[in-house]
Design a protein around this nucleic acid. Structure first.
Length: 495
RNA sequence: GGCGACGUGGCCAAGUGGCAAGGCAGGGGCCUGCAAAGCCCUUAUCCCCGGUUCGAAUCCGGGCGUCGCCUCCA
C-alpha cells in the first residue's frame, strides 16, 4: 500500500514516489536562533519528526536535513539588545534549541548545517544566478530578479501583477523591481560579514535553504517541509533561486504544517499569548505536549491552552496505565482454564486490526489522530479483556504481552514513550515514611515502598482502615498513587 | 482588496458519497472497606439555505461566521 501526502504545490494528495527507491530525502526549515523557540515552532518540528519516524518505520531510509539560521537581522537586533555579539546570541540559542528538541524527543537530523558555515556555497550560488541573468549586483547588495523567473508564484498561488499592488521598497534598498528579494546584503557597520565578490556582506535569509538542501540532498529531492507561514515568500523564493540556477525541479513534495493558535488567535508577542516551549516542558512531561500535537492533523490549526494540555495528560495516562496493567498481567501465575480459545483469538485479531488501521491512517497524509484512535481502540479491548478474565492461561498472558508490545511500538512510531514509567523514581522521603509506619530499617527507596505496601496489606487484612489509609494518604502526599488490583497492590509515580 | 483553510456531541478532534472514529469532561451503575485504576450505560437534525444523487457531514451554488498568508515569522 502506498503512502499518500498532501502537496502544497499541487494542492492535492499524491502518492509518494521517491526520487530513489527506498530512500527519502527531506529538508525541514529550522529555527532562526535569536531566542527560545516557542510552541508553534515546536509543533512544526514535532510534526516533521513524526513524519520522518513513520517513513522510517515504513521501511524508508530517510535522509533528514534541518538547518540552523545563525545569521539574520533578528539575531543582530538581539545582540544589540543583550550587548553581546551576534555569534554569541546564535551560539546561546542554538544550544537552547538543541536541548529543548532533545527533551521533546525529536530525532536528530542526519545533517544540521549552520548558515554561517556554508557561506562559500551561498556565494557560489549567487554567482551562478548572476551569470544566468537571474540576479544583479547593486552597490554591494545582490538581488534576485523575480521577473526573470516565469514560474514565480506557483507554490503560493500568487500572481506577480497582484503582488505588485502591495509591494513596497524599504528605504535604503537598491532594487530594480519592488518584488526582487535580497540574495546578499552589503554589511553595515557592526554587523557580521564575510568577504565576497561584491564586497563584505552577509547572505539573505532565503539563500541558505537552497544551498544547503542541494549540498546535502541534491536537486529534486523528495520532501521539503516547514510551517505554513513559510509558503510565501520563503519557499517561493527558494524555488525561484534553485530552479533558476539548476533548471531542474527543486522539490517533489512540499509539506506545510498548520499554525498553532492560542485562544483561536495566532500566537504573538504583541497579543501577550506567546508561549515558549521551555515553559511548557517545565510543567508537563514532553509527551503530553507531543500527544496534544498529535491529536490534531498536522495541516490543521492547533488551538493550544492549558486546559488542552491537562486533557492530553489524562489521555496519555490512559495509555501508560493500560501498558502498566498489561505488564502486570505478565507476572501472574498462568491458570489452566484461562479466558478460553475464542476470547484469546479475538484479542490477537484486535492486535492485528490495530496495526492495520494505524498504518492505513498514517499512510493517508500522516493522520496521527486516526493512528492514535487505532491505539486507543486496542487499549480499550485490552482493558475489557483484563476486566472480564480474572484467570489467564499461559497463551492469554502471551497475547496480552503482544498487546502491550504493540501499543508501545505504535505509540513509539509517533515518538511517544508510554512504557517508560519511572517506577524507580521514588522520592527519598519514602524511607522516612517506611520507618515511621512500617518499621523499615534500611535506606533503599524501592524496599521502603515495598515495606509500606506490605504494612498496608496487613492492616487491610486486619480491617484496620485507619492505618491502611494513613499509608496510602502519606504516599499520595509524596506524589505516589496506590492502586489495588486483583493481583495485589502497587505504587505508581505521579497522578 | 487578493489568495487559502476551516465550521462535526459540553470541550477537542478523525472522517471527502452508503447506518457519525478516538480523547477529555459530566451523569448513572458495577467492582472496591473507602479510593485509585478498569468495565457497563448515557448525550450529534455534522453552521444555515438551496441543488445534484436511490443515498451527502462528505459533491455543487449561495449565505453567515472563524482563522491564516499577502511584511520578519514554524
Amino acid at each position: 500500500m502506498a503512502i499518500r501526502l498532501h502537496n502544497t504545490l499541487t494542492r492535492r494528495e499524491e502518492e509518494l514516489v521517491t526520487r530513489d527507491p527506498g530512500r527519502v530525502a527531506m529538508y525541514v526549515c529550522g529555527p532562526t536562533v535569536y531566542n527560545d523557540i516557542h510552541i508553534g515552532n515546536a509543533r512544526t518540528f514535532l510534526s516533521f519528526d513524526v513524519i520522518r519516524r513513520y517513513l522510517t518505520w515504513r521501511g524508508y531510509d530517510v535522509d533528514f536535513v534541518q538547518n540552523v539560521t545563525d545569521v539574520d537581522d533578528k539575531i543582530i537586533n538581539r545582540a544589540a539588545e543583550e550587548g553581546i555579539s551576534s555569534a554569541e546570541v546564535a551560539r546561546k540559542y542554538t544550544e537552547a534549541f538543541l536541548e529543548v528538541m532533545s527533551a521533546l524527543g525529536v530525532t536528530e537530523p542526519t545533517h544540521r548545517p549552520k548558515a554561517t558555515e556554508e557561506i562559500p556555497g551561498m556565494i557560489e550560488l549567487v554567482e551562478r544566478l548572476i551569470s544566468a541573468g537571474h540576479a544583479y549586483e547593486s552597490e554591494g547588495d545582490v538581488y534576485f530578479s523575480v521577473r526573470s523567473f516565469p514560474d514565480y508564484g506557483k507554490l503560493s498561488g500568487r500572481d506577480i501583477e497582484e503582488l505588485m499592488v502591495g509591494a513596497r521598497v524599504e528605504p535604503g534598498e537598491r532594487k530594480r523591481d519592488p518584488l526582487d528579494f535580497a540574495l546578499w546584503k552589503a554589511a553595515k557597520p557592526g554587523e557580521p560579514h564575510w568577504p565576497s565578490p561584491w564586497g563584505e556582506g552577509r547572505p539573505g535569509w532565503h539563500l541558505e535553504c537552497s544551498v544547503m538542501s542541494e549540498k546535502y540532498l541534491g536537486t529534486s529531492f523528495d520532501i521539503h517541509g516547514g510551517g505554513a507561514d513559510l509558503v510565501f515568500p520563503h519557499h517561493e523564493n527558494e524555488i525561484a533561486q534553485s530552479e533558476a540556477a539548476s533548471g531542474e525541479p527543486f522539490v517533489r513534495y512540499w509539506l506545510h504544517g498548520g499554525m498553532l493558535q492560542v485562544n483561536a488567535e495566532k500566537m504573538s508577542k504583541s497579543l501577550g499569548n506567546f508561549v515558549v516551549l521551555r515553559e511548557v516542558l517545565a510543567h508537563y512531561p514532553s509527551d503530553v505536549f507531543r500527544l496534544l500535537a498529535l491529536q490534531t492533523h498536522y495541516r490543521s490549526p492547533l488551538d493550544f491552552s492549558n486546559e488542552r494540555l491537562d486533557e492530553a495528560q489524562a489521555a496519555l495516562e490512559r495509555l501508560e496505565t493500560v501498558v502498566r496493567n498489561l505488564r502486570w498481567a505478565r507476572d501472574v501465575l498462568p491458570q489452566p482454564a484461562g479466558a478460553g480459545e475464542e476470547k484469546h483469538a479475538a484479542l490477537l485479531a484486535s492486535v492485528e486490526r490495530a496495526r492495520e488501521k494505524f498504518a492505513e491512517e498514517m499512510d493517508d497524509d500522516f493522520n496521527t489522530a486516526g493512528g492514535l484512535a487505532a491505539v486507543f481502540d486496542l487499549a480499550k479491548v485490552a482493558n475489557v479483556f483484563l476486566s472480564e478474565n480474572p484467570r489467564l492461561s499461559a497463551e492469554d498472558i502471551d497475547a496480552l504481552g503482544l498487546t502491550a508490545d504493540t501499543i508501545v511500538a505504535l505509540t513509539g512510531v509517533l515518538g511517544l514513550r508510554v512504557a517508560e514509567v519511572p517506577e524507580a523514581a521514588y522520592p527519598h522521603e519514602v524511607v522516612t515514611l517506611a520507618r515511621e509506619l512500617a518499621g523499615y530499617e534500611g535506606d533503599d527507596e524501592s524496599a521502603a515502598v515495598a515495606a509500606l505496601l506490605a504494612a498496608r496489606d496487613a492492616a487491610r487484612a486486619a480491617k484496620d482502615w485507619t492505618v491502611a489509609d494513613a499509608v496510602r494518604g502519606s504516599l499520595e502526599e509524596l506524589g505516589l498513587r496506590v492502586e489495588d488490583t486483583a493481583r495485589g497492590s502497587r505504587v505508581v509515580v505521579g497522578g
